[in-house]
Amino acid sequence: MSGLVLALTVLLAAAMIGAALVAVIGKSLPIAILSAGLVSLVASVLFLLLASPDVAMTEAAIGSGLTTFLFFFILGRMRGGEHD
């Protein structure tokens, strides 16, 4: 049981770091925003494994839900400005 949880933690950490690298280094801005949302979503599962369900719910609802939509609302108004 403990080994399984440990393996899952390592997997989630690796997925989170990979998504973060895509969010920071990747070429396309919409994919970067989605990856940042993915980081939050994976982090919320990690919070659940760290025995904090309250934080997990907050992160899933706010960090990965609402924040991603805020970015897309703004991005949708700035067509053409996304290639720096």
């Binding site: 973060a20 920071v24 982090a43 919070f47 760290l50 934080v55 992160e59 924040t67 720096d84």
Partner: peptide
């Protein structure tokens, strides 16, 4: 990054990292 939106995305990633450290 020089694009402002990308900087804000990077800040949200760092924010998540701080939260994970504190819960851990």
């Amino acid at each position: 990054n020089r694009n402002i939106l990308r900087m804000i995305v990077a800040f949200t990633v760092a924010d998540t990292g701080v939260n994970i450290v504190m819960v851990a």
